[in-house]
């Protein structure tokens, strides 16, 4: 029973952190149309920076190396990790958003992500190279050590609350004039520019907000697991977040969360129950990718707007001042018709 409870808790934490990732990507892509093809890098940077802020200085005798090692308390280290991913978003935005859009922008993000991946793997003085960081200090460390299930459920609550805050934030943003500007940029950036909005600034805001949110998910991930290595944030992970958003419905926050339930939890976790084949250990992960890939193709083919499409904006409206105009449509029709009637 306790194993089962622990498993359910892990599934829930996975769901909540993926919800946070897809909400972050939704602000970038679903709102502002920014093709960020390295979502998972922001998760990793949030996680790594949390780790190097919270951990004590690296102990060279263990052959473990990493930068900083400031041994900050976990709440402060969490903020440091989140801020770090936001800053990374800003830096990538500086390179990518000034002149580039659509597929060119996508390539730059993908390339930057790949560079950072290679850098943190090959340069073992940064985040301990390919071995990655482990034994990362967790919140409520003693609970985590002695009562792992209790810790898991505490974490379900923490990640759930954080997810709800992010969701609330994303909704506030969506329905605001700023969110409207972002969506207009998604539709036609030049026109928004020609109407006097600094589109670079608005896109940069979407980029930084999205990256920060993904970083929050990253901090939660490493706090829960206590370890992260480059194998945990390959390009394939970015694809899972994208698949979740596309299947669920871009531009719709509930859709984004439904997508991460479908893709990241049901398909990603569900396929773990396919029996292993001893002679080909890669079969199951490969099958998982094939299934998620097919899901994306089918969804783009048959329901391009996603399971829950973007909702139509509705506003509080007062009746028009001129009642006749309402009845007769255009003003020219009105002027002639109204007098005749």
């Amino acid at each position: 029973m306790s194993i089962f409870l622990g498993y359910v808790a892990t599934i829930l934490v996975t769901l909540f952190t993926y919800n946070i990732f897809t909400l972050g990507l939704n602000i970038q892509f679903g709102y502002a149309g920014i093709l960020n093809f390295t979502v998972i890098t922001f998760m990793a940077m949030g996680a790594y920076f949390y780790a190097v802020f919270v951990m004590p200085p690296a102990n060279a005798s263990n052959q473990v190396f990493y930068i900083l090692g400031l041994h900050w308390p976990w709440p402060l280290a969490s903020i440091a990790g989140i801020v770090a991913s936001g800053i990374l978003g800003y830096l990538i935005g500086l390179i990518a958003l000034k002149r580039l859009r659509s597929d060119y922008l996508a390539i730059v993000t993908l390339a930057t992500g790949t560079l950072l991946y290679g850098l943190s793997g090959d340069q073992n003085k940064l985040f301990d190279g390919w071995a990655g960081l482990f034994s990362v200090n967790q919140p409520f460390q003693s609970v985590a050590n002695n009562h792992p299930n209790t810790f898991s459920w505490i974490f379900v609550v923490i990640s759930g609350v954080v997810m709800l805050i992010v969701w609330w934030f994303a909704n506030q943003l969506y329905s605001s004039p700023l969110g409207r500007s972002m969506r207009a940029i998604r539709e036609d950036q030049d026109v928004v520019d020609a109407f006097g909005k600094n589109t670079f600034k608005v896109r940069m805001m979407a980029m930084v907000i999205g990256s920060t949110i993904v970083g929050i998910g990253g901090v939660l991930t490493i706090q829960y697991i206590g370890a992260l290595s480059p194998a945990g944030w390959t390009t394939g992970e970015t694809f899972v977040v994208w698949a979740a958003l596309l299947v669920g419905g871009r531009g719709n926050n509930i859709g984004a969360m439904l997508g991460s339930l479908l893709v990241a939890v049901i398909f990603n976790e569900g396929t773990r129950y396919i029996p292993q084949v001893a002679s080909s250990p890669n079969l199951v992960p490969d099958l998982r990718n094939i299934i998620i890939g097919s899901l994306v193709i089918l969804s783009i083919w048959f329901r391009p707007q996603g399971v829950l499409p973007e909702r139509k904006a509705k506003f509080f409206e007062l009746p028009l001042k001129d009642k006749y105009a309402q009845t007769f449509g255009g003003v020219s029709a009105n002027q002639e018709l109204a007098t005749e009637v």
């Binding site: 409207r180 969506r183 207009a184 998604r186 539709e187 036609d188 030049d190 026109v191 139509k312 904006a313």
Partner: peptide, 10 residues
């Protein structure tokens, strides 16, 4: 060059 994915009012 309308914003196609937004309503006329938006």
């Amino acid at each position: 060059r309308e914003f196609g994915g937004m309503t006329v009012l938006e």
